[in-house]
Computed example of a mutant assay.
Amino acid sequence: MKEILLADADATAQLGEALARSRPAHAVVHLHGDLGAGKSTLARALLRALGVTGTIRSPTYTLVERYPLVDGEAWHLDLYRIADPGELEFLGLDADEVTLWLVEWPERGRGTLPGADLVVELAVAGPGRLARLHGQTPAGVAWVEAAFNHGVVTHS
């Protein structure tokens, strides 16, 4: 586990950029945190750093937004409004072209989502945010290490 204090939105964007630079070929990220903790901000920064141009919309109401990447497709999901994991069956979430999953509120889709390579926990910490990154697979552990070797400053 790595922990970092993100002083502001720019620091959150820098973390997203570091994760983009070190991303494995296929990855699933579960983003945890209360409303306003910075999950969407981090996801947008990561997508932007991966070359996504144009508007990066929050999937709060659409549940899923799809973005083309050089090596496939990224899906950004926000499951806050999901009452039952069975509701996800109608979204067709088993596409082979998905190389990056960014899932907010993944606990609401338990049992229907792919397992996480990386779990990111975000929490409000004064004027900034505290981010904890947990690699869940060998690829996820290597990803966290690589991201922190790309200039992200740790606090533990």
Rank of each mutant, 00 (worst) to 15 (best):
R108M: 06
E107S: 14
L93I: 12
P127N: 08
P127Y: 00
F90R: 12
A123T: 13
E104I: 11
E97A: 15
V124C: 10
L100G: 03
G115F: 04
L118I: 12
F90L: 12
T99P: 00
L100C: 07
G111W: 10
G115Y: 05
A125Y: 02
W101C: 08
L118S: 12
P114Y: 07
G115P: 12
G126E: 07
G126T: 07
A116L: 06
W105C: 03
L93Y: 07
A95P: 00
R108Y: 02
E121H: 15
D96V: 13
G115M: 11
L113N: 10
L93S: 09
E121T: 13
P106K: 06
L91E: 01
R110D: 14
T112R: 15
L118V: 12
A116R: 06
T99M: 03
L118Q: 09
L122Q: 06
E121N: 15
T112E: 13
T112F: 13
V119A: 09
F90W: 11
V124Q: 13
F90P: 00
D96N: 12
V124A: 14
D96M: 02
V98R: 05
V103W: 06
G126H: 03
P127F: 07
D94S: 08
L100K: 03
L102G: 00
E97H: 09
V119I: 12
W101E: 06
V98P: 04
L113V: 14
E104G: 06
R110P: 06
R110I: 13
A116Y: 02
L100D: 05
R110G: 08
F90N: 10
L113P: 07
V120R: 13
P127A: 15
R108N: 14
V103G: 00
D117S: 12
G92S: 11
R110H: 14
G115Q: 14
P114E: 05
G92H: 10
A123F: 04
A95G: 01
G111P: 11
L102R: 08
V124K: 11
T99G: 06
V124P: 03
P127S: 14
R108I: 00
A95C: 00
E97Q: 14
G126W: 06
T112I: 02
R108K: 15
V124W: 11
D117Q: 02
E121V: 05
W101R: 05
V98W: 00
P106E: 05
